[in-house]
Design a protein around this nucleic acid. Structure first.
Length: 647
RNA sequence: GCUGUCAUAGCUCAGGGGUAGAGCACUUCAUUGGUAAUGAAGAGGUCCUGGGUUCAAUUCCCAGUGACAGCACCA
């Protein structure tokens, strides 16, 4: 005699166990048609499942955003059936729904290629049209294992064998095809709809382990209706237009070539952008109590052996040897051991802590070739690195200060939101468990004090300590770690850093490794995509172009350009033999934020016609006024308040 | 690193066993014009590198390098 409570609080009593389908029908035919899955006491279940006890029930319809995940999950099953129908002998493995779509990993001697996709997609549409009901069955574990093994599905059999003993083995049928699945599923294949598209093929390791066989993965995207699918595909195209590699070339910011894989050739304009960011960060650090240092590029392997990097990261380091000497040097892959060397010069007092030591540290790491990506993932990079030497008691307050600074910096660059991950101890690590307990505890407390919400990234900490990762998202939806804060009790111990305490004893400082933008290379890549090349004035590599209408205005235009340069703006002069329309178009395509147009009239009246990027209107201003206006607009955000106060 | 795809002018790309094309960009000439393309002419290629097959290879085959996508990696 279950009583069902609906979201509006109303209740319905049934004489016997009742299925979701029956409840929906009892409420009304409209809901019966629309309900895809029910939620029983917070748990999603198939419509056909019977409810035996009192429960809170609601229904998920196509309008519900939760339907997306169901559609994608089912689309993955559908694709697996289609693939096995078209390519007998292909083994199935797993196929989850993911952000924006789904994938399925298959095992097959011949990997799938993009040419295979249209046939598979066509088959899927055929299966949707067939509208097969999804039916759920509970199987005995041994029966299930034997069934899949007999079919030659060794990956599936392995999955079932590895399921925890408490887990009920459920199988879903769709027509003649079946798969192991936890569910729930839509009512039938027809519910999936037709707003899906297979996108690409790729390799992926079985169970995500590089030692396992390579599977063939097919990615697809699926939506509730065609409109959503079209919008998503349009968004993908937009993302491609924003790609920093494309914009970097078009705006003449940088290039990479075969002779220096993973290193950036910064062109004048890109370097201007880089310097603007560097100068900004330098000001922020100096005003937040950091001192800047500079340490060697090439350091003897002995130091890396002491720090532990040699043992763990030897394969990822660039080594330099000299004919004249026995020594082996390594290009530094990180700055912290060098900073400890500075800390160790002379006796340090507790009065000096926290000591915040910053460096725009240029590092080299041999990254696997497949990891390289434009300027986002490179082998030679520069960090806005700093190490805070402090006492254990100071960890929390230093973390809070750091997070405040980081938030303010991200905001100045136009990032209002970012994700924070908490990475705890990895399997392979240095330091005793007791030390890790303290480090993780201190970081957790600090996060609470700073009001930071984190998601746990289990086992992903650095080998010397737990860390926070601050993640920004690029235009293509990929997440990039930029900021970081790592608590380290190990490095000071290994490299023997110490300070004199208030009672004249010796103690180990704690080191906080921290970066806000992370690597300049990566951060600039994200900035380029964030703004699609249309930077705010303070960051724009070319802030103003002075363009002439007639050659009679050339002298005046040169005078205007010089005056702007004296005011500190980055200016280009365009006196080329082109019509003004062509000049406007050219500079607009290169995302120049301001064009000052000068013709005979302006030259005579000592004015300029200011044209904003993307705007149609012009504004005629006296030269001095235009300069003052642009100069104020080009002020970096951290200096704006001061300007107002007359500083 | 692994799997797959790709590599032709500065860029975007077409082509194809018989010494290579378009558009844009570039140079020159004419044009001096008022807010997203003035016109004409010209120059520009080791068709990624090495090997093989062939009378002949940029094209077909093999290897390497690099790029791209995903996976793995990311102190």
């Amino acid at each position: 005699m279950p009583t069902i409570t609906l979201p509006d609080g109303s209740q319905r009593a049934f004489d016997a166990a009742v299925t979701g389908t029956a409840i929906a029908e009892a409420i009304g035919p409209g809901l019966a048609r629309a309900a895809l899955v029910m939620v029983v006491d917070g748990q999603e279940q198939d419509m056909a499942r019977a409810i035996t006890a009192d429960a809170q029930v609601k229904f998920i319809t196509r309008k519900d955003p939760a339907a997306l995940e169901l559609i994608r999950h089912d689309a993955a099953h559908l694709m697996a059936e289609a693939v096995q129908a078209l390519y007998p002998g292909t083994q199935v493995t797993i196929g989850p729904s993911i952000e924006n779509g789904f994938y399925y990993d298959f095992y097959r001697n011949e990997p799938f290629t993009p040419e295979d996709l249209p046939a598979i997609e066509a088959k899927m549409r055929e299966l949707v049209a067939r509208n097969e009901t999804f039916t759920r069955e509970e199987w005995d574990r041994d029966v299930a294992v034997k069934y899949f093994e007999d079919k030659g599905e060794r990956f599936k059999a392995e999955l079932i064998r590895d399921l925890p003993p408490s887990e009920t083995i459920t199988i879903y049928r769709q027509g003649a095809w079946l798969d192991l699945c936890r569910g729930p599923h839509l009512r039938s294949t027809g519910d999936i709809g037709t707003a899906f598209k297979l996108q690409k093929t790729a390799g992926a390791y079985w169970r995500g382990n590089a030692k396992n066989p390579m599977l063939s993965r097919i990615y697809g995207t699926a939506w509730r209706d065609q409109k959503e699918l079209d919008a998503y595909l349009t968004q993908l195209e937009e993302a491609e237009r924003r790609d920093h590699r494309r914009i970097g070339r078009e705006m003449d910011l940088f290039h990479i070539q075969e002779e220096a894989v993973g290193s950036i050739f910064w062109h004048a304009k890109g370097w201007k952008l880089y310097r603007t960011v560097e100068e900004y960060i330098r000001r922020r650090l100096e005003r937040n109590g950091y001192e800047e240092v500079r340490t060697p590029q090439l350091v003897d392997r002995k130091l890396w052996e002491k720090s532990g990097h040699w043992e763990k990261y030897r394969k990822n380091m660039f080594i330099a040897e000299v004919v004249e000497e026995e020594s082996t040097l390594a290009l530094k892959p990180m700055n912290c051991p060098c900073h400890v060397q500075i800390f160790k010069q002379g006796l340090r007092s507790y009065r000096q802590l926290p000591l915040r030591m910053a460096e725009f540290g240029s590092c080299h790491r041999y990254e696997p070739s497949g990891a390289l990506h434009g300027i986002m993932r490179v082998r030679a990079f520069t960090q806005d690195d700093a190490h805070i030497f402090c006492t254990e008691d100071q960890i929390a307050s230093e973390t809070v200060k750091f997070v405040e600074l980081l938030e303010s910096v991200y905001k100045d660059f136009g990032f209002e939101s970012f994700a924070v991950k908490f990475s705890d101890r990895p399997d392979e690590r240095a330091g005793a468990d007791e030390v890790w307990d303290r480090a993780e505890g201190a970081l957790k407390t600090a996060c609470e004090m700073a009001g930071v919400t984190t998601t746990l990234n289990q086992g992903e900490g650095a080998f010397y300590g737990p860390k926070l990762e601050f993640v920004l998202r690029d235009a293509i939806g990929r997440d990039w770690q930029c900021g970081t804060l790592q608590v380290d009790f190990v490095m000071p111990e290994r490299l023997d850093a110490e300070y004199v305490t208030a009672d004249s004893a010796r103690a180990r400082p704690v080191m906080l490794h921290r970066a806000i933008i992370g690597s300049f290379e990566r951060f600039l890549g994200i900035l380029i995509e964030q703004y699609a090349g249309r930077f705010p004035l303070w960051l724009a590599p070319t802030q103003v172009v002075v363009a002439t209408i007639v050659s009679d205005a050339d002298d005046y235009a040169a005078e205007v350009a010089t005056a702007l340069r004296v005011a500190g703006l980055t200016v280009e002069l365009d006196v080329s033999n082109q019509k003004i329309q062509a000049k406007i178009r050219d500079h607009s395509l290169h995302h120049v934020p301001n064009i000052l147009v000068v013709g005979r009239k302006e030259a005579e009246e000592r004015t300029v016609a200011l044209r904003r990027l993307g705007g149609a209107a012009q504004e005629i201003l006296p030269l001095q006024q235009a300069i003052a206006l642009l100069k104020a607009e080009a002020m970096p955000p951290d200096l704006r308040g001061e300007a107002k106060h007359g500083a």
